[in-house]
Simulated scan of single mutants.
Amino acid sequence: MSLEVINNPLFVTIQDRGRFGYSHIGVTNSGVMDEYAYFWANKLLKNSFDTNILEIAFSNVIFKANENTQISITGADCEFFINDEKKELWQSYNIKKNDIIKIGKILSGNRIYLAVFGGFDIKKEFGSNSVTIKENLGGLDGNKLKKGDILPFNSCTFNYTMKLKEEFIPKYEDNLTLRVIFSYQENYFLDEEKKRFLTLTYLVTNDFNRMAVKLSGEAIKCEINGIISEAIAFGSIQIPKDGQPIVLLKDRQTIGGYPKIGVVLGIDCFKLSQAKANTKIRFQEISYEEAVKKTKEFYSFVS
């Protein structure tokens, strides 16, 4: 009763909502990069919203089902096959023993999510199954999946499937506007620099992983070179000495010493996680009150 990894995938990890309340001992939150795709993958299977899932970051991943189950695939648009028959994303599928599931070429977006009914039967660490490689936590052995890994689940047989309406399926575009709350060390940035920050267009660089994404564009100047290291929130925008913004994501370090001009709205970071290199990024200011409202609306919608 398991899903078996048949080939050697480049980067597949087990994730869930993440682990919370351990930053004081240096343990980062981790968790899925795109919560929108994650929640829908579980919702299509009627799983609880904290059920673990596979986050797939590169093409060419092959699994074998060793028992009957139901799966769903969401996230980045990709070539997806069951027993060499091409299938659509954002819906559930009934899987039989010995079925072969393959993720081929990624067409748009960055990260694909594969969920099984009931999740994988794996012991949690610090309240989560999420893999954080730099901390050697989560998953099967604190690392990405490799050929021969066995992911146990409870076998089930179904006579129905579910599909998400087209209107709710996101399109991963080459232009993104990220909403920002000015905060942290904003007083160390002149008003003219903050205005420039909101008018400039940046590009996503190849320096992009689960920890952070570095952007490239005209430099933003800060009145100080650094700060005493302090806690870092999800979506924080660091401005290092070269003036190129860095947006901190799920596997970010728990503390840092670069000044931060503000923080990207968390639900916009989910869209950012699907951006490819050279995606154009612009920032738009949002009030704290509006940010809270938008965040509540998001979680009310997916729950």
Rank of each mutant, 00 (worst) to 15 (best):
L3H: 00
L10R: 13
V12E: 00
G18P: 07
R19C: 13
G21I: 05
I25G: 04
I25P: 03
N29K: 13
V32T: 13
A37G: 11
F39G: 05
N42F: 06
E55C: 13
I56Q: 09
I56T: 14
I56D: 13
S59T: 12
N60V: 00
N68G: 11
Q70L: 10
Q70A: 15
I71N: 00
F81Q: 02
F81N: 04
D84T: 12
E85H: 15
E85A: 12
E88C: 12
L89K: 11
W90N: 05
N94H: 04
I95A: 09
N98W: 04
G104C: 01
I106Q: 10
S108Q: 13
R111A: 01
L114I: 01
N129W: 04
N129H: 11
V131H: 07
I133W: 08
G138Q: 11
G138M: 07
G139M: 04
N143G: 14
L145T: 01
N154V: 14
F158D: 06
N159R: 11
T161C: 07
M162G: 08
K163G: 08
E166R: 13
E166T: 10
F168K: 08
R179K: 09
V180D: 05
V180F: 03
S183T: 08
Q185G: 02
L200Q: 12
T201N: 11
L203P: 07
M211P: 02
V213T: 08
L215S: 03
S216W: 11
G217K: 01
G217Q: 09
G217H: 08
C222R: 01
A231M: 09
A233N: 08
I237K: 08
Q238F: 05
I246Y: 06
V247N: 07
R252E: 11
G256P: 07
P259K: 02
P259E: 06
K260G: 14
I261C: 02
V263S: 10
V264A: 03
I267C: 10
Q274W: 03
K276G: 14
K276Y: 06
N278K: 10
F283T: 05
S287A: 02
E289H: 07
E290C: 03
K294R: 14
S300H: 15
S303G: 15
